[in-house]
C-alpha cells in the first residue's frame, strides 16, 4: 500500500527541506479545502503533506505604513474579521469571503486559492486587481512575485516543487482608492463562479479615475488581468459611455469555454454585466459613497 506522511514544520527552512527531500509528490497544506477533496477524488497521490500553518508568518495580518501583509495560510474567517484590511481592500476581503461556506471560511486561504490555480477561484481576480505580490520562499531564499505570475494554467503554477508562498503584500492605498469583486453563480452561495470580476481604482477629487486594475475569472484557462478594461476606466468618470465601453472590453477579453457551469456565450455576456456592476461598486467606494457588503 502507498503510504502518506505528514509533517508540520515550524520554520521555513524545515519546510523547504521537507519539500526538497521528498522522493515522490509532496503537497503543501494550508486550509486543505481543495487539497483534501482532490486527494479523495484521486486527482493525485502525494507521499508527503507539509502543513505550513505552524510556520511563523503563515497565519496572521499586519499593517506596515498603509501596506498590508497577509499570511499565506490565513483563513478567510480571520481575514474577514480584520477591520483595517476590510476598510482598505473591501473587494479582496469580499472575494475571499465568497469562497465556499462558513465552514470552508474557517480553513480556506489566499495561497490555497491561488495555488489551486483554478481560473474560477474567487479571491484570485481580486488579488490581481489589488496588484498583490506573493512572497515566495524556497531553497534559494525569498523572492517576490506578482500574483498574476503564479498560476500558469488550470491546476499549474510557476512555483518550483520546493517553493511555497509565505505571505502576500498589498500596497499602501492612495486617497480615494478602493476595490470590488463580484462573481456570478446560479445560487446565492456554495457555487463555483461562472464568471468573476475584480476591479481596483483610484479616483481624483472630481471622480475621474487615475489608476485602475481589472481582472476576470472563469473566462480563460487562468484568471485574466485585463489592461483594456483598465485603459477604458483611466481618465474617465464612470458614466454611461464608459460603462458601455467597459462592458464591451470585458466581453472582448473573455475567451471562455462551455461547461456544466455555463455556456461560452453566456459567460461572455456576464463578463460584461459584472464588469459594469463591479466598477460601479469600486467607484462608489473610492468616492466614499458606499461601504459594506454586496451580498
Amino acid at each position: 500500500m502507498s503510504s502518506l506522511s505528514y509533517a508540520a514544520p515550524t520554520s521555513v527552512d524545515a519546510a523547504v527541506k521537507l519539500l526538497a527531500g521528498a522522493s515522490g509528490l509532496a503537497k503543501v497544506l494550508s486550509g486543505g479545502t481543495d487539497l483534501l477533496v482532490q486527494m479523495r477524488a484521486g486527482r493525485f497521490k502525494p507521499e508527503l503533506i507539509v502543513d505550513t500553518k505552524k510556520i511563523p508568518g503563515v497565519i496572521g495580518i499586519r499593517e506596515e505604513n498603509g501596506a498590508f501583509i497577509i499570511g499565506a495560510g490565513t483563513p478567510g474567517a480571520v481575514v474577514e474579521a480584520h477591520a483595517g484590511l476590510t476598510a482598505a481592500w473591501p473587494g479582496l476581503v469580499e472575494a475571499l469571503d465568497l469562497i465556499g461556506s462558513t465552514q470552508v471560511q474557517g480553513r480556506c486561504s489566499l495561497a490555497g486559492n491561488l495555488c489551486n490555480a483554478s481560473p474560477a477561484a474567487d479571491s484570485v481576480p481580486a488579488l490581481y486587481a489589488a496588484a498583490a505580490v506573493a512572497v515566495v520562499v524556497g531553497p534559494n531564499g525569498t523572492r517576490e512575485v506578482p500574483v498574476e505570475q503564479i498560476p500558469t494554467g488550470p491546476g499549474r503554477t510557476s512555483l518550483a516543487r520546493d517553493e511555497f508562498i509565505l505571505e502576500f503584500k498589498l500596497p499602501a492605498r492612495p486617497a480615494r482608492s478602493s476595490d470590488a469583486y463580484l462573481r456570478f453563480i446560479p445560487r446565492t452561495e456554495m457555487d463555483i463562479a461562472v464568471v468573476g470580476c475584480g476591479i481596483s481604482v483610484t479616483l481624483d477629487a472630481n471622480g475621474v479615475c487615475t489608476a485602475a486594475r481589472c481582472s476576470l475569472g472563469a473566462v480563460a484557462p487562468t484568471v485574466l488581468l485585463v489592461q483594456a478594461m483598465a485603459d477604458i476606466l483611466v481618465g474617465n468618470k464612470l458614466d454611461a459611455d464608459t460603462l458601455a465601453k467597459l462592458d464591451a472590453a470585458a466581453q472582448a477579453a473573455a475567451k471562455p469555454i462551455s461547461d456544466k457551469r455555463g455556456t461560452a456565450e453566456y459567460r461572455t455576456k456576464i463578463a460584461g454585466v459584472l464588469a459594469r456592476r463591479t466598477a460601479a461598486i469600486a467607484f462608489d467606494r473610492a468616492s466614499g459613497k458606499a461601504t459594506g457588503k454586496t451580498h
Binding site: 446560479p186 445560487r187 446565492t188 456554495m190 457555487d191 463555483i192 456544466k260
Partner: peptide
C-alpha cells in the same frame, strides 16, 4: 437549478453537491 448533466460520452458531469445544485438556506 437541479439537473443531471451528461457529457458526450454519457458520463455524469456533476455527481456532487457542488454542481448538483440543491437550494441552500440563503436562496
Amino acid at each position: 437549478s437541479e439537473e443531471y448533466i451528461y457529457n458526450d460520452k454519457g458520463l455524469m458531469e456533476n455527481p456532487g453537491f457542488l454542481d448538483y445544485r440543491c437550494p441552500v438556506a440563503s436562496d
